[in-house]
Amino acid sequence: MATQPASSPRFPIEDPKRSRGKRFALLATRYRLVAVFCLLALVAIGLNALFVAELHTEIEKIEVLLKTNSGGNPSGDLRKEIEFLSSQKTRMTVLLAVLIACFGSIVYLFYRRVAIPLEGLTRAARRMSRGELSATVHVHPKHDFREIAQIINDMSANFQEVLLLMGTTVGNSQSAIEQIEKLLKNGNAAGCAEDLTDQIQTIRNDLELLSSVMREFEFYHTRFDGRKVVPTDRS
């Protein structure tokens, strides 16, 4: 007998729990950093806009004063000062534009990487909750929510398999019951005892299969013990 591994590897071969935990931790750190960056960008944009507005007002004030005092013909030092203030204003305006562009890019990336995938996940989950089990979520390898998308798809696959299994088993049992009815209608039950036993065995096997499937689930803090639904031990 071969040595049995503790768990079967899924490609890529790694400890899924550990790598999942690491991925979620990285994701949380990334979003925290983005949030901090957005906050700083907003503060910087606000301060910058305020500074540009103040500079603009100051330059205008000086120009008005000059017009009234020296007929709009300032001395060399004052002209240099006005030019310096104007160039400062231009620099600050450019910086403000860059900051707004950065902030806009972050918001756009957030929309692409978070809002759109989340919308897809919600849509698929909603369809599944309505019974459309064939609804799937596209698992994009680079999306942050690929893990959740995969889990939703897995849940849907499980539901479908269980329902298919139940449908097939029920159909099988119904055929067996029809056979039994036919045999009994012939009025020679003793003569076809072997056939009857076979059909009853088929139904028994099907019920055992359904029972074994039911036993693997836990629902509403209850479980199926093979005969009836009993509360689960919650201690």
Binding site: M1, P5, S8, R10
Partner: peptide
């Protein structure tokens, strides 16, 4: 008594594994 050496949940994963 058989050894399960891998699990795949799609055809693509099956080929790779």
């Amino acid at each position: 008594g058989h050894a399960i050496i891998g699990e795949a949940r799609s055809g693509i994963e099956a080929i790779e594994l």
